Amino acid sequence: PTIVLKVSPEELKALEKAGVEIEKIEKNEDGELYITLTPEALKKAGFE
């Protein structure tokens, strides 16, 4: 199962800087950012 999270541009930068593997980055028509994370990326980021 993949996880989709709504993030701010600042959060996205912080995640990328931390080396979190982001599978997909999407922006909706309201300009909101959503990222898709794999279970492996979540484990690496410390989420179980």
Rank of each mutant, 00 (worst) to 15 (best):
A41P: 01
P9I: 13
K27F: 15
E23A: 09
T38Q: 07
G31E: 05
V4H: 08
A14C: 15
L42Q: 04
A41C: 02
S8T: 12
I3Y: 13
I35F: 01
E29H: 12
L37T: 15
P39L: 15
K43S: 08
K17P: 00
G31H: 04
A18G: 08
L33K: 01
L15H: 01
T2K: 10
E29Q: 10
G46K: 04
T38K: 07
V20I: 14
G19N: 07
K17D: 12
A14P: 01
E26P: 01
P39Q: 15
T36G: 02
I25K: 05
E21Q: 09
T36P: 00
L37M: 09
V7R: 01
E11W: 14
K6I: 08
L33A: 06
P1S: 10
A41S: 07
E40T: 03
P39M: 08
L12S: 01
G31C: 05
Y34G: 01
K44M: 15
T2Q: 09
E21C: 02
A14N: 09
K17T: 15
T38G: 05
K13M: 11
K44H: 15
E29D: 13
K43C: 12
V20H: 01
E11H: 12
E10D: 14
I35M: 02
L37Y: 02
P9A: 12
L42A: 15
I25Y: 05
I35R: 00
I22V: 06
A18K: 13
L33Q: 03
V4Q: 10
I3L: 06
L33W: 11
P9C: 07
V20L: 06
K17A: 11
G19T: 02
A14E: 12
T36C: 04
F47C: 06
V20K: 00
A14L: 14
V20Q: 01
V7T: 03
L37S: 05
I3F: 07
E26G: 05
D30W: 15
Y34H: 09
I25P: 01
V20N: 01
T2R: 08
K13R: 12
T36K: 06
K27W: 12
E23K: 06
G46Y: 05
I3M: 09
E26S: 09
T36Q: 06
F47R: 02
E26C: 15
I3G: 02
L42M: 09
I35P: 00
V4W: 05
E48Q: 07
K44T: 14
L15W: 08
A41E: 14
E16A: 07
A41M: 07
E48F: 04
S8Q: 05
E48T: 11
V4D: 03
L37F: 02
T36Y: 11
L12P: 00
K24S: 11
A45N: 03
G19H: 07
D30V: 15
V4I: 12
P39T: 08
E11R: 14
G46V: 04
T2L: 15
A18E: 07
K24M: 10
L42V: 08
E16S: 08
L5T: 03
G19I: 02
P9E: 09
T38H: 09
L15A: 03
L42C: 05
T36I: 07
E10R: 08
A45W: 08
K13A: 13
L33G: 01
Y34C: 04
A14Y: 12
E26K: 04
E32R: 07
L37Q: 00
G31S: 04
S8M: 04
P39E: 15
A18L: 14
E32F: 14
V7P: 01
K27L: 14
I35T: 01
I22N: 00
L37A: 10
D30N: 14
L12K: 02
K6G: 04
G19D: 05
A18I: 11
L15Q: 00
N28I: 07
I3T: 12
L5W: 11
E48L: 15
T38L: 04
A45L: 08
I35H: 00
E26Q: 08
F47M: 10
K13L: 13
E29V: 13
L15V: 03
K43Y: 07
E40P: 01
F47H: 05
T38E: 06
F47D: 03
E21T: 07
K27G: 09
V4A: 05
E32T: 14
E23Y: 05
L5P: 00
E10P: 05
K24Y: 10
K13P: 01
N28V: 07
E32Y: 13
I22P: 04
V20R: 00
N28D: 10
E29L: 12
E48D: 13
E29C: 09
E21V: 06
G19L: 06
N28M: 13
G46L: 08
E32C: 05
I3P: 02
L15M: 10
G46R: 02
E16P: 00
P1F: 10
L42E: 02
G31I: 01
E32D: 14
I35Q: 00
L15E: 00
G31A: 03
V4C: 05
E11M: 15
E26R: 07
L37P: 00
E32G: 10
G19F: 07
P1R: 11
E40D: 09
A14G: 06
F47N: 03
L15I: 11
K13Q: 14
I3S: 04
